[in-house]
Amino acid sequence: MHSTVPFRAVILLLLTARLTFAWGTLGHETVAWIAQSYVSETTESTVKSILGSTRSDYMANVSTWADSYRYTSSGRWSAPLHYIDANDSPPSSCSVDYSRDCGEAGCSVSAIVNYTSILLDNTSGQALKNDAMKFIIHFIGDIHQPLHDEALDVGGNTINVTYDGEATNLHHIWDTEIVEQLANGAGAQEFAKNLSSAIRAGDYGWDVDSWLNGVSLNDTLSTGTGWASEANAYVCSDVLHAGVDAVEEGGDLSGTYYQAHYDVARVQIARAGYRLGAWLNLIITGRTDG
């Protein structure tokens, strides 16, 4: 029997284990680089001003700040904001219910709602906006990783697997190893250029026009919940499609498992970057295309 105990109930266990971040450094930086290619000049200028940055990688450079911050004494409160614990029943049933799944300490959906409102509020102080921007850049990445929208086995952290000969867990391979194998040696900027080209070309059957359906500043809660629900559905269709035991006993997952499911990582990283750029454009200019 596999547990649906929320992440926060075993946080001390995970703090002593190998730390796993949604998409890992490569994934988060790739999402940010994609977003940078979709923001308008006005949005870029405003984001740089809020971040106090003149760097060419102004978003990619801060894309993992929230992961470092959560493990500091002053930032420990933010740990629950990196995920939403869907208390569903994969692989037979996947769903996200905000009232059921977003705990009292908050979740990724409530965080996106909150930090978007801060960025929209002209009275917000510079320091508050700086943190809000870094959180938005990170949490829009997080919410697109399927196991950050799942409570089962602590979002897969306690599902033991082998990948490329190394013992690890299911959550970690979706954060890191699958993404690195997919990038095939490319760094984040190059990987992002490849994915941005695929977005523009409509490769892989991607219907990019549909990626912004339902995206609205008038209902940020529905927008965030929609993104979480979309990612969560992959837990049933791909991540755990054959069940936990099949994954744990399925041998090295860098072979047939990767080949069967890597496209989920590819489309979700692309969607996250595209949506992050559009979301920032919407906040700053009122238009998704800036």
Rank of each mutant, 00 (worst) to 15 (best):
residue 2 H to M: 03
residue 4 T to F: 01
residue 4 T to M: 01
residue 9 A to R: 05
residue 11 I to E: 11
residue 12 L to H: 14
residue 13 L to E: 14
residue 20 T to F: 01
residue 23 W to R: 02
residue 28 H to N: 10
residue 29 E to P: 07
residue 34 I to E: 02
residue 35 A to K: 04
residue 38 Y to E: 13
residue 41 E to T: 12
residue 44 E to C: 03
residue 46 T to H: 15
residue 47 V to W: 02
residue 49 S to M: 07
residue 50 I to M: 04
residue 50 I to Y: 07
residue 53 S to E: 12
residue 56 S to V: 14
residue 60 A to C: 06
residue 64 T to E: 13
residue 65 W to I: 08
residue 66 A to I: 14
residue 73 S to G: 06
residue 74 S to W: 02
residue 76 R to H: 12
residue 79 A to K: 06
residue 80 P to F: 01
residue 81 L to M: 09
residue 82 H to G: 09
residue 82 H to P: 09
residue 85 D to S: 02
residue 89 S to Q: 03
residue 91 P to H: 01
residue 103 G to K: 04
residue 104 E to R: 06
residue 108 S to T: 14
residue 111 A to L: 11
residue 116 T to F: 06
residue 117 S to Y: 07
residue 117 S to M: 09
residue 122 N to Q: 13
residue 125 G to Q: 06
residue 127 A to H: 13
residue 134 K to N: 05
residue 137 I to N: 04
residue 137 I to Y: 03
residue 141 G to P: 03
residue 141 G to W: 02
residue 144 H to I: 06
residue 152 L to F: 04
residue 158 T to W: 11
residue 165 G to I: 07
residue 170 L to C: 10
residue 170 L to M: 11
residue 177 E to S: 15
residue 179 V to C: 07
residue 181 Q to I: 10
residue 181 Q to R: 13
residue 183 A to E: 00
residue 186 A to F: 08
residue 186 A to Y: 11
residue 186 A to T: 14
residue 191 F to K: 01
residue 192 A to M: 02
residue 196 S to T: 15
residue 206 W to S: 10
residue 212 L to N: 13
residue 215 V to G: 03
residue 217 L to F: 09
residue 217 L to K: 11
residue 220 T to Y: 06
residue 220 T to S: 06
residue 221 L to Y: 14
residue 224 G to R: 00
residue 225 T to L: 15
residue 225 T to N: 13
residue 230 E to T: 09
residue 233 A to E: 14
residue 234 Y to R: 00
residue 236 C to D: 01
residue 239 V to G: 04
residue 239 V to E: 03
residue 239 V to Y: 03
residue 242 A to P: 02
residue 245 D to M: 03
residue 248 E to Y: 03
residue 249 E to Y: 05
residue 250 G to E: 13
residue 250 G to F: 12
residue 251 G to N: 11
residue 255 G to I: 10
residue 258 Y to F: 15
residue 258 Y to N: 12
residue 260 A to P: 08
residue 261 H to S: 15
residue 262 Y to T: 08
residue 262 Y to F: 14
residue 262 Y to S: 03
residue 264 V to R: 02
residue 265 A to N: 12
residue 270 A to N: 04
residue 270 A to G: 04
residue 276 L to R: 02
residue 280 L to D: 03
residue 282 L to V: 08
residue 287 R to Q: 15
residue 289 D to M: 02
